[in-house]
C-alpha cells in the first residue's frame, strides 16, 4: 500500500483551483472590461449618423430643388454647412448631443491629374488630433467650380467628394 496522504493534497489543490476560477469569474463579470471591440460601437453609431445627415442634406425638401448640400459646397458656405450639419447631428428628442465636425472637399485637378482637397469647415478648438473621429463622405456633383476656391482648373461640371470628420467632445 502506498502512502495515500497525497490524495488530500490533490483535493485541496483542486478546491483551490476552483476557488481561483470562481474568483476570476466574479472579478471579470462584475468589472466591465472595456475591450477593444467596444470602441467600435460608438464609431459605428457616429458613422451611421454622419452618413444619414449628409444623405438628408443631399435630399431636397421639394422635388426639383437643388439640395442644401450642393448649394453649400458650390457657394463654399462654411457657416451654412456647419450649422446645418451640426444642427441635424446634435438634435435629440430631449436635450442635445455634443458633436463637432470639420469638412474637406476633395476634387481632381485635371491638368496635373492630382487629387487635391481644400477645407470647407475648419475644425474648432475641441480638435486636438487625439479624438477617435470618424470620417463620412458624400458625392456632390457641381455645375461648375465652387466659388471662392483658388487653385482649381478651369470651371467645368465636376464630381467632388465631401469628407466630414465627426467627433464627440
Amino acid at each position: 500500500m502506498v502512502n495515500d496522504r497525497g490524495q488530500l493534497y490533490t483535493m485541496e489543490g483542486v478546491a483551490a483551483g476552483v476557488i481561483m476560477l470562481l474568483t476570476a469569474y466574479i472579478v471579470v463579470s462584475t468589472t466591465s472590461v472595456y475591450t477593444a471591440g467596444d470602441t467600435h460601437i460608438p464609431d459605428m453609431q457616429l458613422e451611421q449618423l454622419g452618413s444619414d445627415v449628409l444623405a438628408m442634406m443631399d435630399t431636397p425638401d421639394t422635388k426639383g430643388e437643388v439640395s442644401d448640400l450642393e448649394i453649400f459646397v458650390s457657394t463654399n458656405n462654411e457657416t451654412g454647412f456647419k450649422n446645418a450639419f451640426l444642427g441635424y447631428c446634435n438634435a435629440k428628442a430631449i436635450g442635445a448631443d455634443n458633436l463637432h465636425m470639420s469638412a474637406n472637399v476633395t476634387y481632381r485637378h485635371a491638368s496635373s491629374n492630382e487629387i487635391r482637397d481644400y477645407p470647407l469647415v475648419e475644425p474648432d478648438n475641441t480638435w486636438t488630433g487625439r479624438e477617435s473621429a470618424v470620417r463620412v463622405t458624400r458625392w456632390v456633383e457641381l455645375e461648375g467650380n465652387p466659388s471662392g476656391v483658388s487653385g482649381m482648373d478651369p470651371s467645368r461640371p465636376r464630381a467632388v467628394l465631401v469628407e466630414v470628420l465627426l467627433w464627440r467632445a
Binding site: L21, G37, I41
Partner: peptide, 20 residues
C-alpha cells in the same frame, strides 16, 4: 478564461465591424 475574454471582445468587434 483567456479564451472567454477573447471571445467577448470578438462579439463587440464583429457586430460593430460588420456594420463599419
Amino acid at each position: 478564461l483567456a479564451l472567454i475574454i477573447n471571445q467577448s471582445a470578438l462579439v463587440g468587434q464583429t457586430t460593430a465591424e460588420g456594420v463599419l
